[in-house]
């Protein structure tokens, strides 16, 4: 007890002794705020579980997700096959466990590609304004003008189906909103006195944008990306469903619902199990995003 007290005292100190202590105290307050939101914590737990399941997939899955067993096809839920088996006798539970890796792979790659592109284009455009802003924003407009799924479809059709091409297609269609958000934030920040002040210290545009503007844009961007994760999962599943994402026999959840569609009347578990997995993970990201918004929103400074 006294040791917890001491930690808390150290974290909430009025006069931190190092930059690390100051940052830790700030993180602690944010975390405390976040933990107050039960639903967001619930979302975070599901996502943590997803990551653990993906990491330990070989130990969790009872069967090989790719091994077919025609004798055992279309078996209902049982102790041997928790979620039943599919039309070629593969264990659905094992396929969903291995499929979590593909899901994480897609959202991870999309976030890594789309977020930096969006924030760089947005902040540069917002900070410089004028001609640079016009050019960058018209390019953004062009990407925004394409219907998202159609552009992704066209891209996958041109590059050939496959999970990597689906990721590229989704990333290309999802950065423009991030650029817009980052630009909007930058425009409200750039005329602030603290930006004038750092300009008067002699800082160049690169230092101002990366060190002073980006940290203030990142929080609203993280919230937006987390909320978009659900959409990304659904788009990836949609591409899989249309046969343009992950290719059989890889255990991608969208592709699984697609093949399950043919058996929906008599063998409901084929489509219900991967469908539920998509639903639960999307919901978890939405809950987490809402919770993060309350903690990170720069307008509600704690």
């Amino acid at each position: 007890m006294s040791s917890t007290r001491r930690w808390q005292h150290w974290l909430l100190s009025d006069s931190p002794a190092s930059p690390f202590q100051a940052a830790a105290g700030r993180t602690y307050l944010g975390l405390a705020e976040f933990l107050k939101n039960r639903l967001a914590v619930f979302g975070l737990l599901i996502i943590a579980a997803l990551i653990l399941i993906a990491f330990f997939a070989p130990y969790i899955a009872p069967c090989d997700p790719l091994v077919t067993n025609l004798v055992n096809r279309l078996q209902p839920l049982s102790a041997a096959h928790y979620f039943g088996t599919d039309e070629v006798g593969r264990d659905i539970f094992s396929r969903i466990v291995w499929g979590s890796r593909l899901t994480l792979y897609v959202i991870g790659l999309v976030a890594i590609i789309a977020a930096p592109v969006g924030i760089i284009i947005g902040t540069v455009s917002g900070y410089f304004g004028g001609l640079i802003d016009t050019i960058l924003m018209r390019i953004t407009d062009i990407f925004l003008a394409f219907p998202k799924l159609i552009l992704a479809l066209a891209f996958v059709a041109a590059l050939g189906p496959g999970i990597e091409n689906a990721v590229i297609a989704i990333a290309i269609t999802s950065w423009p909103p991030y650029a817009r958000i980052a630009r909007g934030e930058t425009i409200t920040i750039r005329n602030g006195d603290f930006i004038k002040a750092i300009r008067l210290q002699g800082a160049g545009p690169i230092r101002i944008i990366t060190g002073h503007i980006m940290p203030l844009c990142i929080s609203s961007l993280i919230v937006r990306i987390t909320l978009d994760m659900a959409g990304i999962i659904l788009t990836a599943a949609g591409l899989g469903f249309l046969g343009l994402g992950a290719q059989p026999p890889s255990p991608e959840w969208g592709a699984m619902t697609s093949t399950g569609r043919a058996y929906i009347i008599d063998h409901w578990w084929l489509i219900t199990m991967p469908g539920t997995a998509i639903f639960v993970v999307s919901l978890a990201f939405n809950l987490l995003g809402d919770g993060l918004r309350e903690v990170l929103d720069p307008k509600s400074d704690n």
Partner: peptide
């Protein structure tokens, strides 16, 4: 030195 001390310091910098 600026007029408004609330606006002239970066809110996320120590």
């Amino acid at each position: 030195v600026f007029q408004d001390p609330y606006g002239s310091l970066h809110p996320r910098h120590t």
